[in-house]
Amino acid sequence: MGEWFRHDIVDGGRLRLFCFLTAFVCAFLFIRFSVRMIRRQVSWWPGNVTPGGHHIHHVVFGLVFMCVGGIGGLVVPGPDTFAAGLLAALFGVGTALVLDEFALVLHLSDVYWSEQGRLSVQVVFIAVALSGLALLGLRPLGLADLDGAGGVLQVWSIALTLLLNLAFATVTLLKGKVWTGLLGLFVGVFSIVGAIRLARPASPWARWRYRPGTRRGDRKLARAAARERRWRAPVQRFTTALGDAVAGRPTPPAPVSGEDPSTPPDRP
């Protein structure tokens, strides 16, 4: 284990990324544990930071940590020094605090424990996955090939390959396949398959290309909806359950006037 860490992480120039990812995961798990304890109002856990009765969200602390870690990382020389690793870890802590309240910043409203708040957990999972791929040595769009590029013809062929990979990944993302498109930035076969296959029914690509009222559009929409029910729905249920287990279940919406409060609300 020590030999792998020295050879692949330290000698491979990925020490700062390792420190960033480790601190990011630990900070996210800690802050989610903290807010769940506060939500349960346990007596032995400190509450929210409320100087003068004003609740300061942890995204504020995250921004401060990101500024200190990011600017400090630009100033400190040497990517493999203790200071560089420490600042990268501080940047990871700040990034975790910011992304944990990503939905709150996006909506400019406290949606932390609502259904919209699930977006924060999804963004964190994506950040962990992409950082993990980079830690394994994968570089987006095959940029590693540029390091060994020699002649003009080779440079142009690599540039064309990068553009094609980016185009396939963009089409995949427009088709509503976020995970496939992002993974395709690192492993091109994912974006190629995602770009060829049908779009998700509610994606921008489906709205532009699968026009309802036309024979071709209705047929593709029907196929996309059937595929969504068969393949996407079970995956969505699994990822939702995983997110709830890690980050906590959102608060159910208040019952509408005249609705039986004992009836559990529908969940997407």
Rank of each mutant, 00 (worst) to 15 (best):
F91S: 12
G117D: 04
G137P: 02
L183D: 00
L74W: 05
S114G: 09
L86V: 12
A149P: 05
A149F: 10
V60K: 02
E101I: 07
V98W: 06
R197Q: 12
Q122M: 02
F190M: 11
G52V: 04
A96L: 10
A89L: 13
L108P: 00
N165C: 14
S157T: 07
A103H: 03
D100L: 15
P77K: 04
L119S: 02
A169E: 04
D80M: 12
L174T: 02
D145Q: 14
G73C: 03
L87E: 01
P79H: 06
L198I: 11
G148H: 11
A127V: 03
V128H: 08
H58I: 08
G132K: 01
A89D: 13
L141D: 08
V105D: 00
T172D: 04
Q154P: 10
A103Y: 02
I196F: 10
A127K: 04
D110I: 13
F61S: 06
G184K: 09
E115R: 07
L160E: 03
V75K: 15
H107E: 13
L63G: 12
L135K: 00
A199H: 08
L146N: 03
G85M: 14
L146R: 11
S120R: 07
A149M: 10
R197F: 09
G78R: 15
T81P: 03
A103L: 02
T81D: 06
N165F: 14
F65D: 01
E115G: 03
G184T: 10
V128A: 09
P79D: 02
T170S: 13
L135C: 04
D110G: 11
T180K: 08
L108C: 06
A127G: 00
L99R: 05
V123T: 09
A134K: 00
A129L: 12
L141I: 12
A159T: 13
S131Y: 08
E115C: 01
L162C: 14
V193F: 14
F168Y: 11
H58Q: 07
L99Q: 04
Q154S: 15
G117C: 06
F82P: 01
V187Y: 13
A88P: 02
V187D: 09
A83H: 08
W113I: 04
V187N: 12
